[in-house]
């Protein structure tokens, strides 16, 4: 569909991306590794099981596209998102990204519990690649949006789960990127905050060059996305118009 458009703005080009990861991670031991290295067999050999989380997937996303990833749990949607972000390494293939990326994953993690909310704005901002100056410039807006009152200057261990997510959401959406990668973050906070969060997302999407979204809310997908990609077993099943893809996907779900 849109991959033939010549784009000058942000762009993602994925070529035969492959991501395998080991399944038997908790069973590896020093003993086995040492004896293995010395050429000894250590009991019954465990098959090195790997999961092909992303399996030879190619996809080009151009400026202005809002792509929704759908599929069952374990289809590789979140893994693909994190692979684009550079969190997971490729086993094979390549991913080329032009533009500043901003990922919204796990909003409740990556905070220093003993530090205040204000201090954590700095740490999290730095961890997603912004400079101290850029973060200070946006600090007041982030604090206003998170709406934590005097809690902003208290250690984060005193926060509720909802407050963690509110602060995380505010930081990630006020330090913007040209490419937004969003994984299931809409269930955050109370009804009032959710409403503001969705409104904020719409604003962001208006400005962002590219959106890649993972959510199980097909209604939200249809309202936000211009393109849907259906994934299964780490591979692409169907790619196209949101309504068409959603329909085929739902039909297959009913048939199963």
């Amino acid at each position: 569909m849109s991959s033939n458009v010549v784009s000058t703005g942000p762009r993602i080009i994925i070529r035969r991306a492959q991501l395998d990861y080991p399944l038997v991670r908790d069973r590896s031991s020093i003993k086995a590794a040492l004896f293995g290295a010395l050429g000894f067999k250590t009991g019954p050999t465990i098959d090195k099981k790997v999961v092909h989380a992303v399996n030879s997937l190619s996809l080009t996303i151009n400026r202005g596209e809002r792509v929704g990833l759908i599929g069952h749990n374990g289809a590789g949607k979140s893994t693909l998102l994190r692979t684009i972000a550079g969190v997971y390494p490729l086993t094979d293939g390549s991913i080329e990204v032009t533009g500043r990326m901003q990922g919204l994953f796990d909003l409740g993690t990556g905070f220093e519990a003993e530090a205040t909310g204000r201090e954590n704005i700095m740490y999290r901002g730095l961890s997603i690649g912004f400079s101290p100056k850029q973060i200070r410039e946006r600090e007041e807006e982030i604090i206003a949006f998170a709406d934590l009152g005097e809690f902003i200057d208290l250690p984060m261990r005193t926060y509720s789960a909802g407050m963690y997510v509110r602060l995380g959401f505010a930081i990630s959406t006020y330090l913007e990127g040209e490419i937004l990668l969003i994984d299931e973050v809409f269930g955050a906070g109370d009804a009032n905050f959710q409403e503001r969060a969705i409104r904020r997302m719409h604003e962001l999407i208006e400005r962002a060059g590219i959106l890649v979204l993972v959510t199980h809310d097909l209604g939200l997908m249809r309202s936000l996305c211009t393109r849907l990609v259906w994934m299964s077993g780490g591979q692409m099943v169907l790619d196209g118009d949101p309504n068409e893809v959603a329909e085929v996907y739902l039909r297959s779900m009913r048939a199963a």
Binding site: P10, G86, P89, G93, E96, Y123, L126
Partner: peptide, 28 residues
Amino acid sequence: TLQTVRVGRMSLWTYLGAMWRYRHLMFH
């Protein structure tokens, strides 16, 4: 604009560049 191309392993030089970008995070 930033451009990143990811194919398996990166060079030592690229790695040091990435370290430099995250130096503030380390000190903070």
